[in-house]
């Protein structure tokens, strides 16, 4: 299982940004109910056991707010060229 760390204070909100929600192939992100210090609603993970560890959310996040830790039994990171036009 992958561990998705969300740094709540760095986030600029699922409603305002929402890139993590858009790039997640499993659609695991949703806005949480609790505001951070800057007034944004950071994401929370619906079901972490569904995470494939593709790290899309981490690589796309413009605010350094997500870090995905992978365990050894995870499949390789998503193919680099898969989404290239």
């Amino acid at each position: 299982m992958s561990k998705v760390n969300i740094f709540r204070q760095s986030c600029k909100g699922v409603d305002d940004c929402g890139i993590c929600k858009f790039v997640c192939p499993q659609d695991l992100f949703q806005a949480c109910q609790e505001m951070n210090a800057a007034g944004y609603f950071p994401p929370e993970i619906k079901d972490e056991s569904q995470c494939t560890g593709c790290r899309n959310c981490m690589v796309y996040c413009p605010d350094f707010a997500i870090w995905v830790e992978k365990t050894d039994d995870q499949p390789a990171e998503e193919d680099e060229d898969k989404n290239a036009g």
Partner: peptide, 29 residues
């Protein structure tokens, strides 16, 4: 184990706590 900060933060200045861009801006990516 959970980490307390983004590992790439070791390359950034400590006193800058968040990026200067608007929400959703591609500059952060």
């Amino acid at each position: 184990m959970s980490v307390s900060e983004h590992p790439l933060r070791k390359y950034t200045r400590r006193h800058i706590t968040r990026t200067t861009t608007c929400p959703g801006c591609g500059i952060g990516t």
